[in-house]
Design a protein around this nucleic acid. Structure first.
Lengths: 227, 227
DNA sequence: CGGCATCCTCTTTGATACTG
DNA sequence: CAGTATCAAAGAGGATGCCG
């Protein structure tokens, strides 16, 4: 990217991460940790292979990404965020907070989705209102690998392997699951729109959402669903 | 910008503000409030007139900017951030926090600077360590209109008109001033590099900087200054 | 299959000129 | 002042080929 040539903190940041796809590469590395080239490709649907290579090279040149030639058991290159790169998590979190308002909009037909992306709004915008309650786990099935939402000690975290047997399993589109988790979509309404749930709904009642609210999320979602 | 077509909060944000120049337009509107087209042009050195027009139209279409046809005393169009647009301040602040690490680097010859940009790192990264002390004001002269840094009740704010007579006036490049304010550059060293100061240095000692630290800022700056 | 490099087409940007 | 019109150059996207 051409530099903005401005002596300004924001412009300097954007000189480094303002290129198309760059922050999404950082998103993947923050979510997934050390990743192989093809892991990144599959977590970044729509990027072309040459662009991913370009971006990784730029990020490395700027000291945000480190490549590591893993020894025989893996026998491939792993890309990691450096400490400086990790500091972009505050930028990503701010973008999550802002962008979640658009998650209620009707989705286009060819919109891609990866379950692990849900970890961003879940861990940034959801809180456990019952810090003294017993730990609870919700399993999310949106196609692909499941994601686990864990409520414990007032904090909501996400993991990619089951921390214990889930209290609740939600199966359906990312949009339905997110609507129910954020409390913007009643479980009964979500069922009508295609969500399947198995187990206790109690953990849902413990969640508090403090992100941007969308009105009429149910009708918005319904509009996106073929009748 | 072409959409990323990903059902992800970050991608959705970037669909709206990920275009080149877009976040810098937001920066100007956050810093300056309602602005005329030409105010924006002068606060965004390097942008071309057609791109500014494009970006304003997009921001308006996305509900982040509102145009207001001001009545006779002004007799021109003013651009404002909407409430949704204002919420981008957390994104801007995160970018400020990240990007300030690069402010110590040697600046290129044709790098542009506007004094009001300093308000970003100052109000985001500086704190007043003496909340019970008397209010203090530092006037910053970097060419163009002066900027005033006000320490009061534990908070550091910036204004564009003098809240009272300044206790200290700093005159010099943005980089020297910022180095001194953040405590990364000793005042005596800064004087040797061309900074002029008038008044009491006491307010500087009250400031605490909690942003990213650059090592060797003095030699870095010296390298950028023609001998 | 992982990790690129190349070629080609299409879109976006940037510089400048121009108009109400 | 507040933009629109024009056009060359850069960058993005897509397909494909290469090499361990």
């Amino acid at each position: 990217m051409r530099s903005y040539d401005q002596y300004c903190s924001v412009a300097k940041s954007l000189d480094v991460v303002g290129d198309r796809w760059t922050l999404l590469v950082v998103r993947e590395l923050l979510l997934q940790g050390g990743s192989r080239y093809t892991d990144l490709l599959s977590g970044l649907p729509g990027i072309s292979t040459n662009l991913l290579g370009d971006r990784l090279r730029q990020l490395e040149a700027n000291g945000l990404v480190r490549r590591e030639h893993a020894p025989p058991p893996v026998a491939t290159t792993l890309y990691h965020l450096t400490e400086v790169g990790q500091e972009l998590d505050s930028v990503i979190r701010a973008l999550v907070r802002f962008g979640t308002r658009y998650m209620a909009d009707p989705t286009s037909d060819d919109e891609q989705f990866r379950g692990h992306w849900l970890a961003l709004p879940v861990s940034e915008l959801l809180h456990d209102t019952d810090p003294d309650g017993p730990p609870a786990v919700i399993e999310i099935q949106t196609g692909g690998r499941p994601v686990f939402v864990e409520l414990a000690a007032g904090v909501v975290r996400t993991t990619f392997s089951a921390p214990r047997d889930p209290d609740l399993i939600l199966t359906g589109s990312g949009q339905l699951v997110l609507g129910v988790l954020t409390g913007q979509l009643e479980l009964t309404v979500a069922r009508g729109l295609g969500l399947e749930d198995e187990g206790s709904a109690a953990p849902l009642k413990r969640l508090r959402y403090d992100g941007p609210r969308a009105t009429g999320i149910d009708t918005a979602i319904a509009k996106g669903i073929p009748a």
